[in-house]
């Protein structure tokens, strides 16, 4: 109940649109929930003047993607204005990046698993239904269609370089998720947290879907920072946020470094 009250309080407090992002900032980072860790990190390390943020959940950017008429989608005028500022040198996307959690943060009542082509020897949930990986990818792509369209439309809207940051790897700790269930609490009680290997596979397939869309659109896809990952390529504890699906400010700082390196022309490891 407490978390619901907190949610309402935050909604009420943030109902007014936030001010326009700094038009002088050379870097514009656009995203949704995964932007929060980055914002926190930017405030902490003093990079804030170089980077401005577009939080697509903010009322200011509702309907960022406009679908009208026979032509392709376009950006809302507010987003187009922010992206098109002359000072921009790098557009950074942290758009979406959570669709894999829809499919597999929690156990599905009809348990499923699949074989990840790049790592076919990963564990397979005993007794789970085998689903073709192509079908999983198709399901994720369809659920992400608006996000991917927004990515493509952003790319067309500006000539400055654009990168997309991979969403954070999954949290390997079921205990942590159980301790910090957030809005999933009731469903976790009912369904339980999906095994880490399945959440990892889903994250990988989701990333491959987004990576392919980026490659097609001419957007550089930046993998999640290696320093944030354990030997199984899942998040190190320092990177865990106090919820089941996001990265911490420490994780955000690693992503921020990737972005600043990209802006400065340094190759991301």
């Amino acid at each position: 109940m407490a978390h619901l009250k907190d949610l309402v309080r935050r909604h009420v407090l943030r109902r007014e649109p936030s001010p326009r992002p700094d038009p002088r900032a050379p870097i514009l980072a656009i995203g949704t929930s995964h932007l929060a860790a980055l914002e926190g990190a930017a405030r902490q390390n003093g990079a804030a003047p170089r980077i401005a943020f577009v939080q697509l959940r903010d009322a200011r950017y509702r309907g960022a993607l406009v679908r009208a008429g026979d032509g392709g989608p376009s950006l809302s005028w507010r987003l187009a204005e922010d992206v098109g500022e002359r000072s921009r040198e790098l557009i950074v996307s942290l758009i979406g990046g959570n669709k894999h959690n829809i499919l597999g943060l929690l156990n599905h009542p009809r348990p499923f698993d699949f074989v990840l082509p790049e790592e076919p020897d990963l564990p397979f949930t005993p007794g789970a239904e085998c689903v073709p990986v192509e079908l999983v990818a198709d399901s994720l792509a369809k659920r992400a269609v608006n996000e991917l369209d927004l990515l493509r439309t952003l790319r067309k809207a500006t000539k400055v370089p654009m990168i997309h940051m991979e969403s954070p790897p999954p949290n390997p700790s079921v205990d942590h998720i159980l301790r910090h269930p957030g809005v999933f609490k009731d469903r976790i009680d009912e369904l339980g947290v999906a095994p880490a290997h399945l959440r990892y596979k889903l994250w990988r397939v989701h990333s491959s879907v987004v990576r392919a869309a980026c490659a097609e659109a001419g957007i550089r896809f930046v993998p999640a920072p290696r320093e944030s990952q354990d030997t199984r390529s899942m998040l190190l504890e320092a990177a865990w946020a106090d919820d089941p699906t996001h990265g911490s400010t420490w994780y955000g700082a690693l992503v921020l470094k990737q972005i600043l390196d990209a802006a400065d022309g340094r190759k991301t490891p």
Binding site: D6, L7, R10, H11, L13, R14, T32, S33, H34, L35, A36, A37, E39, G40, A41, Q44, Q55, L56, R57, D58, N98, K99, N101, I102, L103, L105, L106, H108, P109, R143, G182, V183, F184, R187, L191, A238, W240, A241, D242, D243, P244, T245, H246, G247, S248, T249, W250, Y251, G252
Partner: peptide, 25 residues
Amino acid sequence: RTLEEMERLVEVQCEEEALGSNGRS
């Protein structure tokens, strides 16, 4: 129904996350 409910919850979760940083400092 499970996936529809999860979609709603992830949206809510993301909404909540976006409203303020809850990352560890």
